[in-house]
Amino acid sequence: MSLKYKQIQPPEGINTSKEHPLKEFSLLLLGVLLFIVVAIVSLSYAAHLLAPFVPFSAEQKMADLFAGQMHDRPRDQLAEQIAQEDAAVTRYLQSLADRLAMAQGLPDDMSITVHYIDDETVNAFATLGGHVFFFRGLLENIANENALAMVMAHEIAHIKYRHPIKSLGRAVITGTAIAVVSSAAGSNIIGDVLGETGLLTALKFSREQEQQSDESALNVLAKIYGHVDGANTLFEVLEQAHQDTQQPPEFFSSHPHTDNRIDNIIAMAGKHNWPITGAITPLPPQFSRWLADTDSTFIQRP
């Protein structure tokens, strides 16, 4: 008997799966993203819990290290723009900072050091070791002491609640975790998506810190001036400055939206019965001259 050579069509779906590709994909994506978010959130909480145990003196040493590096770089632009400690504007800002720090109940082992940067940027920031930086662009746009006190108290609150060291700890631990997972994913694109998710999760913490600082600053304003007028003018200045640049949705942003911050201020003032309007304290009359006249006080680098 000889073999019969005949070919019949095999049934489909044995070597492939009938499952819809989108179903598999969405399950996988949701699962992995959920895992990332949970992991980042728990690692961030851990970092936030542990970071305050870093003594403030250690933080200051870290800051000195960074500052040293900055000054060692030849002709570092930022370093050249920072006004000296004895510049009139710096002295004024420092005295305001000391007053606000006292009112805010800054712990004794912490100190605030204010720096003035001669640059267009409309911003101010607080960083490791209690260093607070003010840009000329912001100070030029501020109309009164109340608004300035709001920024200052906000930045001091960041220091008081140890936000810079918490952020650093969080960035180190979540950065490591994301690097490990995304390299395991084996593809650059997937790694980017996972990294992005981690970043967006971290931004949530950043926005919470901003809100905490806003609230603390408002508290101090009410304590010192008896009202919270000026706080909203600050945000109006910020809004004006960022008007020409498109603001991304809050979800993608490190700070809450300015509108939300103003709403939050009004809500807080209402809750604590702080008057929203009151007597405005003007800035010192020479203030604008101080801003312009820092040329002689620049750090001179050979």
């Binding site: 070597n15 492939t16 590709p21 598999e24 994909f25 996988l28 997972v181 994913a185 694109i189 997937i190």
Partner: peptide, 25 residues
């Protein structure tokens, strides 16, 4: 592009690489 991403995700958790299976079939 879609299959590549799906496969990348699959490689994190393991299992049948369904997106490659139909391609190779």
């Amino acid at each position: 592009y879609f299959k590549r991403i799906a496969a990348g995700l699959r490689s994190l958790v393991g299992g049948r690489m369904m997106s490659y299976e139909s391609l190779l079939d």
